[in-house]
Amino acid sequence: LVRYRTISKIPQITLNFVDLKGDPFLASPTSDREIIAPKIKERTHNVTEKVTQVLSLGADVLPEYKLQAPRIHRWTILHYSPFKAVWDWLILLLVIYTAVFTPYSAAFLLKETEEGPPATECGYACQPLAVVDLIVDIMFIVDILINFRTTYVNANEEVVSHPGRIAVHYFKGWFLIDMVAAIPFDLLIFGSGSEELIGLLKTARLLRLVRVARKLDRYSEYGAAVLFLLMCTFALIAHWLACIWYAIGNMEQPHMDSRIGWLHNLGDQIGKPYNSSGLGGPSIKDKYVTALYFTFSSLTSVGFGNVSPNTNSEKIFSICVMLIGSLMYASIFGNVSAIIQRLYSGTARYHTQMLRVREFIRFHQIPNPLRQRLEEYFQHAWSYTNGIDMNAVLKGFPECLQADICLHLNRSLLQHCKPFRGATKGCLRALAMKFKTTHAPPGDTLVHAGDLLTALYFISRGSIEILRGDVVVAILGKNDIFGEPLNLYARPGKSNGDVRALTYCDLHKIHR
């Protein structure tokens, strides 16, 4: 019993810090008490220290592992850092350059016999395009090294910054494609005289377009951006097909006994025919423009016929181009109408809503002055909100995010209106959640004399007048207030005048 009563005193000691020596009952000389009392004092002292730490809000209350900052290894790049964003855009520009100039170089340097010394005699450094290609190869190699040090988000939505895990993730992902696209074939085969082989191998750079397509997928929600990307894709495919079309004609031209190829026909049409040795002929500019003209006309199913396939190889390629053109029509131009419709969806919704308003007016036989006010209010409210119901949009977000959005939407009023000066951010967040926005066209009466005042109004834009009878008592403008002081009276009061809008007004109100 003594032991039980001794232990039962522990909660009292913990909360009230009572010393055991003052209790005459606990001072009985028993061996059990002498053993338990020192333990009680020690526990009391420890609990006292913990309570003191909690009340003082000291940093040592938290466990040590929670006080440590997340460790980022040296030379690790955050995937959302500004440097990584700028670097990704730079790589994107280099990939676009590669997609345009690599097929052009591979096709127009394929057994090209233009006048001038061969590239091997001039030297590697004197070729501007080769120098640019070398810079692109170096940048792609540097990009691989950067990807080995860039964080990523795993399946659990955690940012991984450990170098080993980053390397394994990159090896399992895009490393092989990036490595093949970054191989400097110019340096590996330079001086061997195989410019045709170098041009063909350099087309491996186009593998990076797969990554670019995935990154550009984030802009699919913007109709104008999608339309622009589709047109660029169409032009890029036409450019690639033009390079292939020229390569076919250029390879067949020296081996044909009869002059029936499209390059021969082009030379005869523009007065620059090929001679018996295969030299001469149109310039590279004429060849490229004509090839691009043929691919565009074939892809769009126009086909004027002034550039036509004559050999079997050219006919087979033309059939493939027609098939590609039909697929592009289905996948690209078939979506253009939907994209344009999405661009004008706001206008369509406006006309639909206006039609419903006019049908309501016609069905209920609203008189002319009231009908005009109804239409003007709808037009003004639509121009202010673009038909978007803010309350319906915010309803799907958590309250903390709703408060931040409301604070942002009402920031101008909260910053410049005098009653809100000096208020804490928590108070402003709470008030912003209570605001209701209303609009009024010129001549609209917001409050009639004798109406119950259940709200306090803040003028965000425009001006109003307060009338008693036919006498203008006051004219209020931006950041002015009218209405009933909230919670100042037990019952809502009545208006002693009319409140009429002089201009288009936007008002925020808080109800009782």
Rank of each mutant, 00 (worst) to 15 (best):
S220Y: 10
T445A: 07
N265Q: 14
C232W: 01
A235L: 09
G223I: 03
R71A: 13
P163E: 01
H264R: 06
V321F: 03
V357F: 15
I388G: 03
H380K: 10
G325R: 01
T76M: 08
K425F: 04
K434G: 03
P441M: 09
Q127R: 05
F175E: 01
S283R: 01
Q379Y: 07
E121I: 11
G426N: 04
G199D: 08
A125Q: 07
S277E: 12
D404V: 02
L187N: 15
P273M: 01
T120Y: 06
T102K: 05
F360Q: 01
L227D: 01
V86S: 04
H448C: 07
K111R: 06
L299K: 01
K285A: 13
A242H: 01
Y97T: 01
F234M: 13
N250C: 14
K395H: 15
S412V: 09
L90M: 10
A130Q: 05
P309I: 01
S326K: 04
Y124N: 04
A225M: 04
H448F: 06
F175M: 05
L207W: 09
Q353A: 09
D133S: 12
Q365D: 10
I340L: 04
R362P: 02
I324H: 01
L394E: 01
T290H: 05
V100A: 01
E359T: 03
K418Y: 06
R371V: 03
A99R: 01
Y246G: 01
S383L: 08
K287N: 01
K272C: 01
G346V: 07
V393M: 04
L446P: 02
Q402N: 01
F228Q: 01
F435H: 02
A130T: 05
G267E: 01
I248D: 01
A291H: 01
L93Q: 01
S81N: 04
T311A: 01
Q402L: 03
L197W: 04
L230E: 04
K66L: 12
H264I: 01
W87Q: 01
L428N: 03
N154H: 14
F397S: 02
N335Q: 15
N391L: 12
T437N: 04
S283M: 01
D444F: 07
L134H: 05
Q365N: 03
C427V: 10
K434I: 03
G173F: 04
H162I: 11
P441D: 06
Q269C: 02
L370A: 01
T311C: 01
Y80I: 11
Q415L: 13
Q253A: 14
Y293E: 01
F420M: 05
P419C: 12
G281V: 01
T290A: 01
C406Y: 08
S194E: 14
F294R: 01
R205N: 01
M256S: 15
M256Q: 15
V100R: 01
F140N: 01
H169Y: 10
V168W: 13
E121N: 09
R356W: 07
E376D: 07
L145H: 01
L370C: 03
F333Y: 03
M251L: 11
F101Q: 07
N265R: 14
I248T: 01
H351T: 05
L446S: 01
R358V: 01
Q415C: 06
E359A: 05
D444C: 08
S161Q: 09
R259M: 03
L266A: 01
L207I: 14
L299Q: 01
M179C: 14
L216I: 14
Y219V: 13
T424D: 12
S412H: 13
R208L: 04
